[in-house]
Computed example of a mutant assay.
Amino acid sequence: MSTLLTPKTDIRRAGDRFKTKISWLDSKHSFSFGGHHDPANTHHGLLLVNNDDVVTPGSGFETHPHRDMEIVTWVLRGSLVHQDSTGHSGVIYPGLAQRMSAGTGILHSEKNDSWRLGGDQHTDPVHFVQMWVVPDEPGITPGYEQLEIDGELLSGDLVPVASGMAKHDGAAAIRIKNRYAALYAARLDAGQSVELPDAPFLHLFVPRGAVHLEGTQPLGTGDAVRFTATGGQRVTATEPAEILVWEMHATLG
């Protein structure tokens, strides 16, 4: 597929993202989302949503529906309570991979897990990235999966977080219902580096810290890069950082 594509490295700066800011939510959108629409910025490869959200204590997303979408949530700070109409509930925290398959339809809520009790206060914001990719086919049975991978992240390598690709059978933390997509994460100390995969479509996001992408410019918190028909570059942390990388071997029409 990549032989039919023109190689391109498209840097998207944090400050250029769409923004939704209300009393309890500070959200930045890499692609068109909600009331923000740009027909030239609806997706990259199979990735439709890359929302960088901060939710205040005691608040969150009330029960709302989704359909025919694979939704992966990655928490960077704090904790997030998930509840859905299939009976799943849990607390998502840093190092825990979580996937919800909306399929034929699902209702869920997501709330900041901070609380107050007596003289103790746990009132931190929760910071997380939520990413959506389409499934291979519509109408699948809704589902939920989560697994802690904090130990694997200590390696400083790219760790497969969520994948539907055959090469990650038994290796990825959680499975998504798209055989052309995989998400990796890496936690890097200053000076550590990883090599990006080579694929028709890649999406690199820096949710915290600062890195240098080989052959290009420095990247800071909130910056992203959309790669087409390229890969293999090294990403080196210039300060402690966390990166999220989507490898995709197909795109939306």
Rank of each mutant, 00 (worst) to 15 (best):
F61G: 02
F61E: 03
T63S: 12
T63I: 07
H64M: 05
H64A: 09
P65G: 06
P65Y: 11
H66L: 09
H66W: 06
H66E: 08
R67F: 09
R67I: 14
R67T: 10
D68M: 12
D68N: 14
D68L: 12
D68F: 11
M69S: 08
E70C: 10
E70Y: 11
E70K: 05
E70M: 11
V72C: 12
T73P: 10
T73H: 06
W74K: 10
W74C: 08
V75K: 10
V75C: 11
L76A: 10
R77A: 09
R77Q: 06
G78V: 10
S79R: 13
S79H: 08
S79W: 04
L80N: 03
L80S: 03
L80E: 04
L80M: 10
V81P: 03
V81F: 06
H82E: 02
H82P: 03
H82D: 03
Q83K: 15
Q83I: 13
Q83W: 10
D84G: 03
S85Y: 01
T86C: 11
T86V: 14
G87K: 09
G87D: 09
G87E: 07
H88S: 07
H88Y: 06
H88D: 07
H88L: 04
S89N: 03
S89C: 03
G90P: 05
G90L: 05
V91I: 15
V91S: 14
I92T: 01
Y93H: 13
P94D: 00
G95M: 01
L96R: 12
L96K: 14
L96C: 13
A97V: 05
Q98P: 00
R99A: 13
R99P: 10
S101D: 03
S101A: 12
A102L: 00
T104H: 05
T104N: 06
T104G: 05
T104M: 05
T104Y: 05
G105K: 07
G105N: 09
L107F: 06
L107R: 04
H108P: 00
S109R: 00
S109C: 00
E110F: 01
K111N: 07
K111I: 02
K111P: 02
K111A: 08
N112C: 03
N112Y: 01
N112A: 03
D113P: 05
D113N: 13
D113I: 02
S114P: 02
R116G: 10
R116Q: 11
L117M: 15
L117E: 14
L117G: 14
G118Q: 10
G118R: 13
G119M: 15
G119N: 14
G119P: 15
G119S: 15
D120N: 14
Q121H: 12
H122P: 03
T123Q: 14
